[in-house]
Design a protein around this nucleic acid. Sequence first.
DNA 1: AGCGAGATGAAACTCAGTTTCATTGACGGT
DNA 2: ACCGTCAATGAAACTGAGTTTCATCTCGCT
Lengths: 206, 206
Amino acid sequence: MSNPTGLTPLRERLRTTVRSDLARVAVEMFLEHGFDTTTVDAIAAAAGVSRSTFFRYFPTKEDAVLAQIEARGEQFREAALVRAADEPPLLAARNALTPLIEDMGRNRERSIAVIRLIEQTPSLRARRIDKQHVLRAMLTEVMASRMATDPANDLRPALIAGVTLSMFDTAQTAWLKAGGEASLSDLVDEAFATIGREFAAVNAQA
Amino acid sequence: MSNPTGLTPLRERLRTTVRSDLARVAVEMFLEHGFDTTTVDAIAAAAGVSRSTFFRYFPTKEDAVLAQIEARGEQFREAALVRAADEPPLLAARNALTPLIEDMGRNRERSIAVIRLIEQTPSLRARRIDKQHVLRAMLTEVMASRMATDPANDLRPALIAGVTLSMFDTAQTAWLKAGGEASLSDLVDEAFATIGREFAAVNAQA
DNA sequence: AGCGAGATGAAACTCAGTTTCATTGACGGT
DNA sequence: ACCGTCAATGAAACTGAGTTTCATCTCGCT
């Protein structure tokens, strides 16, 4: 190893710091003044760097807000990988959401404020959903490997991933509407149970 | 009435023509040269209008491509409204997709080319999904009224809408991957059946 | 014929995002 | 301690999307 001390090099630490500073400052300014009226120049100035530097850390203004979502994606992936192999796939997908849900419960106000900001801003809304698609692709992969199947031929992994995230999204919207009062975890469980009954109704008909 | 002839006024017909011309020209140019490298100036020039006029008809460059999706949204809404009241809600939602599916089958190559263009272009992808959210809200409303319930308290309409569109999306992706060879309608049916079995597996476990 | 309004074009402007280049300062090796 | 390398930064010029303002034109009505 070229680094005998074993410590993270200064450069790398600095990079991480600058990046999180930029994201934090950006979100604060967006929450206070709105997304569109806050320019990249202003964010960079407030964070004490140049405009150029901002774009070196985030490809777009939107990404400064959505960076944290990607971080949660990795957390989600790990949770999905450790679920017991004998759980029905759909249940495993639901349970992989748990750490994410707990995280959102801990930072309730901040989570809600950011989600509201995203919902109100078309460009943020659009790009957030795009990131969720990446999340879905990831979950599809994990599901495929746990089900020992090929997602190119077998639609099940993609369907389970899509439906799971769709239900989570609906539950999250309901949670938001209630101002975060209800338990998000309970709402997700309710969503799964509800759709389960709807499918049962269709099958009974057939 | 200020129009004794009963005919659509010339102005209005002209507006519609200009709008569809712009959309057609834009999509053609995007398909040939790519989305990012085609400027609004070039589109406007090719359609014989000014840059200003383009932005009077479409708020963004993306909307010139996605306009047709909104048109299909209305078609979908009408189909959902006429489904028999005694169909299970989830089945009614699935069947409301039929006219849309048939439409896509008729314009197979064009549909596939446009969808591929959208998938390849981040900004188009993002905004398309945003439009799908509008679609989901609409379907939620229709489902709520047919189920005679309030979507603010009852999650079922939103869940059914979300899950239905998610499955349609997955089926569409599979259809695309097969180059439109398979029957999209069959793929959608397969998706519903598959997820139905997955929920049955979870319920059996419990 | 002439008036009012909707539709257009032209031009200037803001800002996001890209590209290029010069400067700085941390790091490894001498 | 000194030096060459290279990653990180800042500055500046550029492209193109989207907005705003204003002048012009032409359709539809009186």
